[in-house]
Amino acid sequence: MEEKLVFTRPECVVDRATHYCPGCQHGVAHRLIGEVLDEMQLADKSILVSSIGCSVFLYNYLHIDAVEAPHGRAPAVATGVKRARPDNFVFTYQGDGDLASIGMAEIMHCANRGENLSVIFVNNTVYGMTGGQMAPTTLEGQKTTTSPRGRDVLHDGNAIRMAEIIAQLEGTSYSTRVALDTVLHIKQTKKAIKKAFTLQNEKKGFGFVEILATCPTNWKMSSLDANERIAKELIPYFPLGTYKDIEQGAK
């Protein structure tokens, strides 16, 4: 019988089982990055700046050079890498606690300087690695280990919408929000990553891709329910769409 290969691992993705929980979508995001790096032939000139959180181990899953940043500081570390080696391709991969809480200053100023690099921001509305505490993106009423009665916006403030905020900065070239809950959305996510990477590759500046993703373990849901929560609860508060694209004009 003739074999026809129709689906394979991207070359720059490591042949290794991830440490992620069942139903977690980091693996999907990793694969999309791997596909885009391969398609754009960027892997051998890439330097990844990993952040603190579940995704710190992304460097174990990609055959590319990487440096580990302190919590929240990936955009500053990436700035240093890119300024030192402007001909390399540089991107960060950060979660919501890392980027939107402790790293708020670093991401804002990195974008505002218009650093020619890309940021992949995975928003699952919770601190995953540390065991499900309230994040800056935790939704009103969402129960976490530090908001056991549900997030009280009068007490804790509201969830932060990063893609919109980043789009407001003059230095930003591209800011978009996508999700990983459906095939269509996954395809859109890949397109968004490719767009951000292309802008950097063409020296057109700072690209920001916010990806809504699941955390079934800390949401205390089945994988399917978690996936459905994205459409039911996350997207209504965090609308998908492109908030800034210098090649299209701001939305």
Partner: peptide, 16 residues
Amino acid sequence: ESEIAAANMLLGAGAA
């Protein structure tokens, strides 16, 4: 934007 960021930029350049 801060000494924190400056030192982390240094980390990035040094790693490079």
